[in-house]
Structure formats: C-alpha cells, structure tokens
Amino acid sequence: MSRHPAPEELLLDYAAGALPAGPSLAVELHVALDSQSKRTVERLVALGGALIEREPAPIEARLDETALERTLARLEAVPVEPKPSLPRHRHPGFDWAPAPLVPHLRPGMDWRRVMGKFDEIRLDLPGDFHRVSLLRLESGRGLPEHKHSGYEYTVVLQGGYTDETGNYGVGDFAVGPGSVRHEPIADPGEPCIAMIVVEKPIVLTGPWGRWLNPLVSRGLI
C-alpha cells in the first residue's frame, strides 16, 4: 500500500475517463503499482456502471458536496472480478517500467542529460498539452529548486526521493506542491526514476533561474 496515494477525487476522474492523457497515464501507473488504489478504481468503475444502469438521469444532476463520500462508502459492497494482466515486452534498460508505460517506450529511446543534473525522456502523448517526462536522478542528486504555476503530477517508478513535502517511494503519488518551492533529492541506493506531468512550465527559483526560465518556458530545457 502506498504511503502517498493519489487523491480520491483524481481516482474518480480517472475511473470516469475524465482526465487528459498525461495525468491519466500518471494515475494508471500509480494504480498499477498500488494495490489499494487499484481496488478503489475497479470498484468505482463497477459502481459507476451499476449507477448508470439503475439511474438513467445524467450523473451531473445527482452530484452534490457529499456525492464522492457516498460513492466511496458503497465501494466495499461492489464485487470486482480481477482483470488478467497481459505480458508486454520491455525494451533493454527499461526492466523497471510498469506495464502501462511499455507501449509509450519506443525502440532506441534513451535518456538525455539536462542541466548537468538529471536525465530525461520526454513522452509524446497526442492531443495532450501537458509536458510528460520520465526523470532519472542518481542517488544524492536533486532537481533544481523550483515552484509551479500549474498542476504537477508525480509517480515514483524506481527508488525514491525526498523534498519539502515528504519522502516518496515506488508507487507513491504526489500532486503539487503548487507555489511552494521544493527541491526533490534522490534517496540513497538505486537511481530514482519518476514520471512527472506538468500543466505549465516550472519556475526555477535558484540563482540561475533568471537566465534559464525563458528557456524552460519555451520547452528548450
């Protein structure tokens, strides 16, 4: 069970198919790695189908401030048949990749060094405006100190990292932290690999931010 599960509201949006491709993939990876979130999503999907069959009125007409709480309270009563997992070929060097990520890894895809600090692979998800990246940090190395002007979704796929908001390991999910400055640093041991989805370019807050932020905002770094 994850120490930092995805928010229930985000799981509900994912189960309803209401998320853009980038955030949806981040939640899908989290669900693949966290058994509790997986059970929650499976029951939300099953319950949603049952509600549609029993109540043909539009769901929007039935929502109020306690709708999510009532829905989640009914989850345990809904039986769920586990779906068989299909084996998928993993490219050399990507043995750590969860199954939902494999279709997005092209042959010959490799890491590129960014700012001399970390490695990145950008993923192209058609129809989505988010910047979707795999980031790799060696033990003890960190991302530059920065803040966000939009949403950021992070799911850890290997190793772990620590920042001002806590410590995150494999399967953990983080949203934000918004305008709060943070500097994620990889934990001791194997490299930390995470998928990060950002709604808007980050804002570097360190001494070089003034010169580098224009490049960041244009997607050049």
Rank of each mutant, 00 (worst) to 15 (best):
P58R: 04
P58W: 03
P58V: 09
P58Q: 07
I59Q: 15
I59F: 08
E60C: 08
E60L: 10
E60V: 06
A61Y: 05
A61Q: 15
R62D: 14
R62Y: 02
R62T: 10
L63P: 12
L63T: 11
L63N: 13
D64C: 09
D64Q: 09
D64I: 03
E65S: 13
E65G: 07
E65H: 08
T66A: 15
A67M: 01
L68F: 01
L68H: 08
L68R: 03
E69A: 11
E69C: 04
E69I: 01
R70E: 15
R70F: 00
R70W: 04
R70M: 02
T71H: 08
L72A: 05
L72Y: 05
A73C: 06
A73Q: 13
A73R: 12
A73H: 10
A73V: 04
A73E: 15
R74Q: 15
R74Y: 00
R74V: 02
R74F: 02
R74M: 11
L75G: 03
L75T: 09
L75S: 08
E76Y: 00
E76I: 01
A77G: 12
A77C: 07
A77E: 14
A77N: 09
V78Y: 01
P79D: 09
P79L: 05
P79V: 00
P79N: 09
P79H: 07
P79K: 02
V80S: 11
V80G: 07
V80T: 14
E81S: 14
P82T: 09
P82H: 10
P82S: 13
K83H: 10
K83R: 14
K83T: 12
K83Q: 15
K83A: 14
P84Q: 11
S85Y: 03
L86F: 05
P87T: 09
P87R: 09
P87M: 11
P87L: 07
P87V: 06
R88E: 15
R88W: 02
R88A: 12
H89A: 13
H89D: 14
R90I: 03
R90C: 07
H91I: 00
H91N: 12
P92V: 02
P92N: 14
P92W: 05
P92R: 01
G93V: 05
F94N: 11
W96K: 01
W96L: 00
A97L: 04
A97Q: 01
A97P: 06
P98G: 10
P98C: 07
P98E: 12
A99I: 03
A99T: 11
P100T: 08
L101K: 04
L101A: 08
V102W: 05
V102K: 02
V102Q: 05
V102A: 01
V102D: 03
P103W: 04
P103K: 09
P103A: 10
P103E: 13
H104P: 10
H104Q: 10
H104C: 06
L105T: 04
L105Y: 02
R106Q: 15
R106W: 01
P107A: 00
P107D: 15
P107L: 00
P107N: 12
P107I: 02
G108N: 09
G108E: 12
G108C: 10
G108I: 00
M109N: 05
D110G: 03
D110I: 03
D110N: 08
D110V: 05
W111P: 02
W111T: 03
R112K: 13
R112D: 11
